[in-house]
Design a protein around this nucleic acid. Structure first.
Length: 262
DNA sequence: ATGCCGCGGCGCCCGCGA
């Protein structure tokens, strides 16, 4: 089973890129972030025609997440528990039935948190604490679980071309990294790091200042695996070449293969 | 310190992203 995450930065701008990539990579499940549209204008028919079931949790202008799956999506649930007043569309979860039982997947768009001296940063930290609480509850189910998404977290200095640029940024502040480590400490595996220990692998390059051309990247899109998923991990790669396409998203897909048959 | 670039929208500037 091949599972991917991709912040597309507007699904309507990136539909051709997505369809090309689906045909080339043939993922089973894809978690999308920043679809930047309401559910009723999501290009559902085009993606269904490519062979995918579609679940969306959209929002006008900003945010918005989706899950695509070659197999039926069950128990589809939007919104991260823990704050009824949070109306930003940043979380969508679903289950897929397999021969080895249920596989659960979440599409996560964790808040950016900048500028850090505004309410945006406490919102990010609060969101991370809610994610930790939810992840803890989900781990108790002892299922293969994949928390896939744009975490807006640079886990370590090795995950940035120029770490010094990020020391005061919400993506790399100590409090941010501490909460990410707390999440991992519950028992999750960073799929990419489990497969590749070398620095220099990134999932985001800013549009500004020739970030891609200078390889001024950061690794902020992650696949976190529960123990029951991690024990099935076969490999994890970043589809970096997608960033060089015309009108690319500033993020590229990250995907893993699990030894799970549907 | 800010913009760089790209996105959406009660659009021709602005907020937002990272």
């Amino acid at each position: 089973m091949r599972i991917a995450t991709w912040n597309v930065n507007s699904i309507r701008q990136r539909l051709p890129h997505l369809l090309r990539w689906l045909a080339a990579v043939e993922p089973d499940i894809v978690c999308l972030q920043e679809i930047k549209c309401l559910d009723d204008v999501f290009p559902r028919l085009e993606i269904e025609a490519a062979g995918y079931n579609v679940a969306t949790h959209g929002q006008k202008t900003f945010n918005g997440v989706a899950i695509l799956s070659r197999y039926p999506l069950e128990e589809v649930t939007a919104r991260l528990p823990g704050d009824e007043t949070d109306d930003q569309s940043r979380f969508l979860e679903a289950a897929v039935s397999t021969k080895q039982g249920v596989v659960r997947v979440a599409s996560i768009y964790l808040p950016n948190g900048n500028p850090v001296d505004t309410p945006k940063y406490p919102y990010k930290l609060g969101w991370m604490e809610r994610l930790i609480a939810h992840a803890k509850a989900r781990l108790a189910l002892e299922e293969p679980l994949i928390l896939a998404g744009d975490y807006n977290v640079i886990p370590a200095a090795a995950d940035a071309k120029t770490p010094a640029n990020w020391v005061n940024d919400a993506l790399f502040l100590l409090e941010t990294r501490a909460r990410f480590r707390e999440l991992l400490g519950l028992g999750f595996t960073d799929a990419f790091r489990a497969c590749e220990t070398a620095p220099g692998h990134y999932s985001f390059w800013d549009y500004q200042g020739g970030g891609w051309q200078r390889n001024e990247g950061i690794r902020i899109d992650h696949l976190l695996l529960s123990p029951q998923a991690a024990s099935k991990l076969k490999g994890c790669v970043i589809d970096k070449a997608v960033r060089a396409e015309e009108k690319a998203s500033d993020h590229v897909p990250v995907r893993c293969d699990l030894a799970i048959e549907v």
